[in-house]
Every structure is written in structure tokens, then in C-alpha cells.
Design a protein around this nucleic acid. Structure first.
Lengths: 230, 230
DNA sequence: CACGGATCAATACAGTGTATCGACATGAGA
DNA sequence: TCTCATGTCGATACACTGTATTGATCCGTG
């Protein structure tokens, strides 16, 4: 092969860093969900070979961790409100909003400990909100409980949202259309309470449902904060 | 290729049904986690070719759905206790126990609507527990809230459990060893509340933490049931 | 006994995460 | 200024994935 056949080597490789990599991965996930994120596609988006990424991450899971941590930054509020309740509420709502923007977050939320800088900062914010209002153990329990609630609630919301979107129908029509199956099941009479709920229940929008439960949980926390701090 | 070269066709194919398929898949998942479940391995475990499965399921996701529903059967209590609170508590605890037996369940919990027969039965049980104790909408909100809580809590618990197991150390040593990283972060002083929590917090076992939060949430529900039923 | 339709296995394909390794550009030393 | 070691990058390779297609083989029915 003569020089003339050989192509000129491509310009110096594009400089890379984790930020760019994570950005590309998030973009892909936003567009096509988590399953659209492959190391090859991420690399391609950065005009790099797939193996190049292994200088910055050592496994795909690590990339996911970085993605989650990146999004955690969106959750941190600009400034901490004074009231503990408003602080926790705000963190929960912002997490939900982030999950609505990046629906793939629902697949990752709670799936691994969040030890990245932003993840730690979020945890710090939660703990700080309650700092001094009760003994430490109570505070930890409170944070865990609230976090567990909204993690679970967000996951369910996104799951339903996807189910609706998959069948391509409005919220209310879902039960009727998600199934011939479900309706048939309900008609068997083996699920009377559920049938009644589907039939007579008001369908509130997801946000209302989310904050309703959230406020209940916050009430429960409030009830435990009456004890004097340790 | 003559007849003599050609092997006698293997005995009549093993009969198959969804139950067997799901059983094999669950066995694989119990042993090696969700990622150990591949259609090829499931089929191999049943002495069948991979394509054979597509007569019973049309996608791998459906197999996961069947697995989840199968495990839901373990959650249904033999008989419903009289007290609504005990009923919900029991469902939550049994879900947790199921998740501890089948840790892969944590990856799937809340990820999709559960419309299988057992999933519907579980939902029915939750709703039935509260039936008549408040207007339907309140009941639905209560069930959603409790479910969101324990879904999230279970997920976090399993996540931590895996993290500990991955580093192979005891609960308490985790913060110290999960990182050089975490300790260094804490030493920066940027996370005072978190540092205090790690330092001064008692480490309660996971079950205690779970039921503590659960009882808080149940208290919150109880507070809303005082209103007369609709 | 022949045939039609269903059932199943084999093959194939496009894609995955990651290990290995050879080429090559870059910086240090002579 | 030339040479050589170093470490980075890309190509190749491997074992594996979910699933479409296709061709053989069996069964029940005419």
C-alpha cells in the first residue's frame, strides 16, 4: 500500500473527559432511554473508538453512576429554604421533576448507593434540613423514610407513564385498554375492591397524587420531631 | 450425509409450559442475578432450543413480568388479618422477605405495572384491607403511599446489601471502606450533617429501619382514616 | 394413505461489553 | 537533531445477547 492509498491520519483525537462522556450518554438516554446507551454509541457521538472510554470509566455501570450523579446536580436547590418541611418537600419535588426530564432516571433511582459528589450533596441537604430538630437516629430514619417514599412513588409514576405511552392512550382509558385483560379480570369478580376503585375512583393527576402522599409522610415525620433533640 | 451419519432425532421434545419456563428463569436469577437470565440459558435448563420459548412469551420483558407475578404469589398471606394496619404491615413485610429471597426482585419492583393474576391479587388485598374505612380516593392514596414507601425502602436496602457484599465487608465498615473515597469526601468538611450522621449515628439493622419507617407511614395513613367513609 | 398446518431446531444477524495487541505519536535523553 | 522508551489510541477479536427467518419434521384430518 503506497502513501497515496493510505489516508492521512485523522486530526489529533478529540480531547475527552468524563464530563463530555457523561453528557453524551445522558443525551442518548434522554432520546432513547437507558437501553439506547451503549459504549459504542456514546463513543461514536464523541468521534472516538469505544475502547477509548475505558480510560475514563472501567465499566458501563460506572458510566451509569456518573450519569445519575450528574443529574443529582439538577436536584440541589439554589438556596436552602428555612423550613425543614419545605426543604424536604422541595428536594422530593425536584427529584421528581428531574425524573420527568430524564425518565431513565427511574430505572436507576435507588438501585445503587449514590456516592458521587452531587449525590452526597443531596444527602447532605436532606440531613441538614433536619439537623438539630431531633436526635441523629431519628433524623436518619426520617430522611430514609421520605427518600424511600419518593423513590418508590417516582418509579411507579414513570412506570405508569410508560405503560400509557406504550399503548398510546390517555390516562383514564388505560384500564380499559391495557386490557381487555384487566377488564376481563375485573369482571371475574375476584377483585371486588380493585373493581370498585377502578370504577368509582377519581383519577387524580400524577403530581397531585405524588404530593398528597408526600405530605402524609412529612406529617409522619413532623410527629416525630416533637421530641426534644438529643 | 447418509442416514448412518445422521443422528437419530432426540426423543420427543420435553413438554413445556410457562410455569416451567418461569421456574427455570427464577432459579437462574436466584443463583446469578437478573443478568444471569438469558433466553438461551433458560431454554438450555429445559433441554430446549432458545426459539422454543417464543411460543410462550414474545419478548424477554414478558418473561420478567411472569417472574415478578410468580413471586407475588409468595406475598399473599394465607389469610387476611382483621386489622387493616396489620394487613398492610404484613404485605409490606412479606414483600420485603420475598425480595430478600429473590434479590433480583429489587431490580424489577415498581418498574412496571403488575397486571398478572397474582399482582392483581396483591393489589386487591391492599385495597380490601382499607375498604370501607374511608372514601375510595383516600384508600387509593393510602395504598399508593404505603406501596411507594416499601418499594423504595426495599430497593435501597438491597442496593446497600449488594454494595456491602461487593466490597465484602460488614455493615459498619462500609463507609470507611466503600471508600477511601467517602471518608475523604467527609473529611473535606463540605458535608457536616452527613459526617455527623456517619460518625454519631447508631447503625440499626435493616429490618428495624424498614419497619420503623413503615410504622411512620402507617401512622400517617391512620390519621386520614378518622374521616368517615364516603 | 396423502396432505395441510402446526411445532420446533438450526441458522443467521446485528448488536453488546470488554480483553488483547499492534501501531503510532509524543516527550526525554544523547 | 536523532533515537528510543512510554503510554495512548484504534482495530480486531471473543463470547454472548435477543430475536427473525427458514426449513425440516411431526401430527391430526380428509
Amino acid at each position: 500500500m503506497t502513501v497515496w492509498d493510505r489516508p492521512e491520519p485523522s486530526a489529533r483525537p478529540v480531547p475527552l473527559d468524563r464530563e463530555r462522556i457523561v453528557g453524551a450518554a445522558i443525551a442518548l438516554a434522554d432520546e432513547g432511554g437507558l437501553e439506547a446507551v451503549s459504549l459504542r454509541k456514546v463513543a461514536a457521538r464523541l468521534n472516538a473508538g469505544p475502547m477509548r472510554l475505558y480510560g475514563y470509566i472501567s465499566t458501563k455501570e460506572e458510566l451509569f453512576d456518573l450519569m445519575v450523579d450528574e443529574v443529582q446536580a439538577e436536584i440541589l436547590p439554589e438556596e436552602q429554604p428555612g423550613d425543614w418541611r419545605e426543604a424536604l418537600r422541595s428536594l422530593a419535588l425536584r427529584t421528581r421533576q428531574a425524573a420527568l426530564r430524564h425518565q431513565w432516571l427511574a430505572d436507576l433511582l435507588g438501585g445503587r448507593p449514590t456516592l458521587g459528589p452531587n449525590g452526597l450533596a443531596v444527602t447532605e441537604a436532606k440531613l441538614a434540613a433536619l439537623d438539630g430538630l431531633a436526635d441523629i437516629d431519628t433524623v436518619m430514619r426520617a430522611v430514609e423514610t421520605v427518600s424511600a417514599y419518593f423513590t418508590g412513588a417516582i418509579r411507579r409514576e414513570i412506570a405508569n407513564l410508560r405503560a400509557e405511552h406504550a399503548t398510546g392512550l390517555s390516562k383514564r382509558d388505560w384500564q380499559r385498554a391495557s386490557g381487555p385483560h384487566v377488564t376481563k379480570m375485573l369482571d371475574t369478580g375476584r377483585f371486588p375492591a380493585l373493581a370498585k376503585a377502578v370504577h368509582d375512583g377519581t383519577d387524580v393527576d400524577a403530581e397531585t397524587s405524588f404530593v398528597t402522599g408526600l405530605d402524609w409522610v412529612l406529617d409522619a415525620v413532623a410527629a416525630r420531631l416533637t421530641r426534644p433533640p438529643a
